[in-house]
Protein backbone atom coordinates (compact mmCIF):
# COMPACT_ATOMS: atom_id res chain seq x y z
CA UNK A 1 0.00 0.00 0.00
CA UNK A 2 1.15 3.47 -0.78
CA UNK A 3 -0.01 5.87 1.83
CA UNK A 4 -0.35 9.32 0.39
CA UNK A 5 2.93 10.95 1.22
CA UNK A 6 2.26 14.65 0.81
CA UNK A 7 -0.21 15.33 3.56
CA UNK A 8 1.92 13.33 5.91
CA UNK A 9 4.97 15.51 5.76
CA UNK A 10 3.78 18.01 8.30
CA UNK A 11 1.19 15.92 10.11
CA UNK A 12 2.08 14.74 13.55
CA UNK A 13 2.15 10.98 13.84
CA UNK A 14 0.29 8.77 16.24
CA UNK A 15 1.12 5.11 16.59
CA UNK A 16 -0.98 2.12 17.56
CA UNK A 17 0.85 -1.12 18.23
CA UNK A 18 -0.20 -4.67 18.82
CA UNK A 19 -3.85 -5.43 19.33
CA UNK A 20 -6.55 -3.01 18.32
CA UNK A 21 -9.52 -4.97 19.57
CA UNK A 22 -12.37 -4.92 22.06
CA UNK A 23 -9.79 -5.56 24.80
CA UNK A 24 -7.91 -2.41 24.04
CA UNK A 25 -10.67 -0.36 22.45
CA UNK A 26 -11.53 1.83 25.44
CA UNK A 27 -7.93 2.71 26.19
CA UNK A 28 -6.93 3.17 22.54
CA UNK A 29 -9.92 5.35 21.81
CA UNK A 30 -9.26 7.53 24.84
CA UNK A 31 -5.60 7.99 23.87
CA UNK A 32 -6.48 8.93 20.31
CA UNK A 33 -9.17 11.37 21.41
CA UNK A 34 -6.71 13.04 23.79
CA UNK A 35 -4.25 13.35 20.95
CA UNK A 36 -6.87 14.82 18.61
CA UNK A 37 -7.86 17.45 21.13
CA UNK A 38 -4.39 18.88 20.84
CA UNK A 39 -3.87 18.42 17.10
CA UNK A 40 -5.64 19.41 13.92
CA UNK A 41 -4.05 16.81 11.80
CA UNK A 42 -2.94 13.36 12.55
CA UNK A 43 -1.19 10.69 10.55
CA UNK A 44 -2.13 7.42 12.17
CA UNK A 45 0.46 4.71 11.97
CA UNK A 46 -1.16 1.28 12.15
CA UNK A 47 1.70 -0.63 10.60
CA UNK A 48 2.44 -2.37 13.87
CA UNK A 49 -1.13 -3.45 14.53
CA UNK A 50 -1.09 -7.20 14.81
CA UNK A 51 -4.80 -7.77 15.29
CA UNK A 52 -7.91 -5.77 14.62
CA UNK A 53 -11.58 -6.46 15.12
CA UNK A 54 -14.80 -4.59 14.63
CA UNK A 55 -14.43 -2.80 17.94
CA UNK A 56 -11.07 -1.51 16.77
CA UNK A 57 -12.42 -0.53 13.40
CA UNK A 58 -15.37 1.15 15.06
CA UNK A 59 -12.99 3.29 17.15
CA UNK A 60 -11.16 4.37 14.03
CA UNK A 61 -14.38 5.06 12.17
CA UNK A 62 -15.78 7.11 15.02
CA UNK A 63 -12.55 9.04 15.39
CA UNK A 64 -12.44 9.85 11.69
CA UNK A 65 -16.05 10.99 11.77
CA UNK A 66 -15.50 13.18 14.82
CA UNK A 67 -12.40 14.66 13.24
CA UNK A 68 -14.27 15.50 10.06
CA UNK A 69 -17.08 17.06 12.03
CA UNK A 70 -14.57 19.32 13.76
CA UNK A 71 -12.80 20.14 10.49
CA UNK A 72 -9.75 18.18 11.44
CA UNK A 73 -7.94 15.50 9.45
CA UNK A 74 -7.20 12.03 10.66
CA UNK A 75 -5.46 9.82 8.16
CA UNK A 76 -4.62 6.13 8.29
CA UNK A 77 -1.22 6.80 6.94
CA UNK A 78 0.39 3.40 7.43
CA UNK A 79 -1.40 0.13 7.89
CA UNK A 80 -0.40 -3.45 8.54
CA UNK A 81 -1.82 -6.23 6.39
CA UNK A 82 -4.48 -7.28 8.88
CA UNK A 83 -5.78 -3.75 8.98
CA UNK A 84 -5.93 -3.50 5.22
CA UNK A 85 -7.72 -6.81 4.99
CA UNK A 86 -10.37 -5.82 7.48
CA UNK A 87 -10.91 -2.50 5.73
CA UNK A 88 -11.20 -4.21 2.38
CA UNK A 89 -13.70 -6.75 3.69
CA UNK A 90 -16.00 -4.05 5.06
CA UNK A 91 -15.45 -1.81 2.03
CA UNK A 92 -14.32 0.93 4.41
CA UNK A 93 -11.60 2.25 2.13
CA UNK A 94 -13.49 5.35 1.10
CA UNK A 95 -14.67 6.00 4.63
CA UNK A 96 -11.06 6.11 5.74
CA UNK A 97 -10.08 8.02 2.63
CA UNK A 98 -7.54 5.52 1.48
CA UNK A 99 -8.57 4.59 -2.04
CA UNK A 100 -8.45 6.13 -5.48
CA UNK A 101 -11.43 8.34 -4.87
CA UNK A 102 -9.69 9.84 -1.90
CA UNK A 103 -6.60 10.85 -3.86
CA UNK A 104 -8.79 12.62 -6.40
CA UNK A 105 -10.77 14.26 -3.68
CA UNK A 106 -7.57 15.17 -1.99
CA UNK A 107 -6.16 16.64 -5.13
CA UNK A 108 -9.19 18.81 -5.74
Amino acid sequence: MNPPQEPLEDAPGFVFKGELTIYTAAESYARLQDFMVAHHRCALDLSAVSEIDCAGLQCLLRSVQLAEREGKRLMLAARSQVVDEAIALLHLGSAFGIDASHSEQDAS
Binding site: A25, A26, C59, L61, H91
Partner: peptide
Protein backbone atom coordinates in the same frame (compact mmCIF):
# COMPACT_ATOMS: atom_id res chain seq x y z
CA UNK B 1 -21.77 -0.18 3.60
CA UNK B 2 -20.67 0.10 7.18
CA UNK B 3 -22.43 2.63 9.36
CA UNK B 4 -22.21 3.77 12.94
CA UNK B 5 -25.67 4.14 14.31
CA UNK B 6 -25.45 6.49 17.26
CA UNK B 7 -28.10 6.83 19.87
CA UNK B 8 -30.38 9.59 18.55
CA UNK B 9 -31.03 10.78 22.13
CA UNK B 10 -27.38 11.20 22.97
CA UNK B 11 -25.50 11.33 19.67
CA UNK B 12 -22.26 12.31 21.34
CA UNK B 13 -22.17 9.40 23.73
CA UNK B 14 -19.74 6.82 22.43
CA UNK B 15 -18.57 3.84 24.39
CA UNK B 16 -15.78 2.08 22.52
CA UNK B 17 -16.86 -1.21 24.02
Amino acid sequence: STLLRMDPERPEAFDPE
